[in-house]
Amino acid sequence: MRHACLAIVVIFAALRAAAIEIEDHRFYPALAGDPAEIPLRVVSTADLDVFDPYLRAFQTARPGIAIDYTVVSSADLHRTIGDGAVYDLALSSAMDLQFQLANDGFAQSYRSTATEALPDWARWRDLIFAMSVEPAVVVFSTQRFAGLPVPTTRQELIALLRAHPDLFTGAVGTYDVRTSGLGYLLATQEDRSTDAFWRLSEVMGGLDPQLYCCSGQMIDDVSTGRLALAYNVLGSYAAERLVRESAGQMQILAMRDFANVIIRTAIVPATATRVEAAGALIDMLATLALREGRGTWPLPPLTQTGADAATGFGPIRLGPALMVYLDPLNRRGFLAEWENAMVQR
């Protein structure tokens, strides 16, 4: 009987686990203190190589806390928190999904002097806190762009793609908005903000675009030369990779006509039990987010986006309007249109 029960629990756990795809996972044992204590369970969309310095810094400050870090896609993160999975902190770049979680009551409020120092646009109701703001940029391969003019607006990009179908067919990458929450957010915000979005999508659709789940893989393919350009890549990842390994293979392009700036946010899920530790990590992230200058941290601070990325646009506003495109009917309509444009044949 006991075995049967155990089996059922295991099966349920497996089902729950199977519902989301864990991309990466690492356990940081406590540097000091009781090893039997429950670790701080963090679920995040940020890759380990981006976020590892933050966790190590946090453990230096709080050696008694073990950290269990799980990397999932933003859609999976939204689903698993919405299903009531137990995590102490959820970090995501898909601010619309984060907002919906907070709006629907899956986040608990947290307040400290560090979070109160955040500007108004960088938090919402003591439920959502900004960690960094990152522009969506175009990353291109310097090798494959040899001899071509570098476009600075979408109009120029459209013209370039139209003029050189031979160079770009099969060599343009962007998010698959059907699977990537961040890609969907960027696409819908572009739809709202610029008329060129659908024409660009049509043009890209004609060039057999490669669709990706994540920024990291797109950047990988640009750096190897498989892709000539990747559209809508998160600036922080791209910059971080460029500095570290590309040796001039890649270049970042910030569109001058319009650029989406997203806020990477943290929420404390309603299921969290180690709220104090989660709050401490939020405090550290919020304090780092307000630092002067970029420093050695992978993610850019809130203060630098404007000048650094030369976008001139403020970040996407945290607010109920973010939920408009999450509406199933709207989503269905948008995806249908997107598929029409992107996956033509």
């Binding site: 709006n103 009551g105 919402w124 506003r317 109920p320 309007a321 408009v324 509406d327 009917l329 709207n330």
Partner: peptide
């Protein structure tokens, strides 16, 4: 019956206060 949630419908709610919207 079809509809498309307009962006402004929720943006105006977000403008008056930081309140949850359903």
């Amino acid at each position: 019956v079809r509809l498309e949630l307009p962006y402004s419908a929720f943006a105006m709610l977000g403008a008056i206060s930081e309140d949850r919207v359903f």
